[in-house]
Design a protein around this nucleic acid. Structure first.
Lengths: 74, 74
DNA sequence: ATTTATTTACCGCTATAGCAGCAAAAAATC
DNA sequence: GATTTTTTGCTGCTATAGCGGTAAATAAAT
């Protein structure tokens, strides 16, 4: 699923100089989660993924042909 | 969690002229999932969310100060 | 106004995500 | 090369995501 999620997490964790346990603690999740994500597992909870990405300062954005229309409203 | 995920899904589903059941069938997930997402639930599986977003032609991208460095490698 | 379609909201069930603990393998540090 | 740290990979346990079914409330179509 080419979202390279595992690579992104690994890359950011390494650049942050964190071990998996440290990242897990920082994100407030179990250590198994970080292990699983970097292993390529995608059947994790979205909320759990958000915690990890937040700890790594990675933002999620949604894009689509319609998103411009979406952003112009509100 | 300001990712407005629920609004994004709702917006795209409506623009696609799909009912929740139709979207659920199209995405290959249970109808409860679409209901939950639009209700704002974030404790859903990432893989399940991907299915729904794929059916709506919505892409996920990850951004961070480090992502430029990440993209320049490979 | 009546019918039809959609949404909201529950239910019980099954599969599994997430957890901590452990130990062996691999990598990094000394 | 010996020691320490990190990673990989299991384990059993608990909480819950996802499922289809049902039914009432709401909205849309006739």
């Amino acid at each position: 699923m080419d979202y390279q999620l595992s690579e992104i997490v690994f890359f950011h964790r390494k650049k942050s100089g964190l071990t998996r346990n440290q990242l897990a603690d920082l994100a407030g999740v179990g250590k198994t989660v970080v292990y699983d994500i970097e292993k390529g597992k995608e059947t994790i909870r979205f909320s759990t993924l958000l915690k990890v990405l937040k700890a790594l300062n990675v933002k999620i954005t949604f894009t689509s042909p319609l998103m411009r229309v979406f952003n112009e409203k509100s």
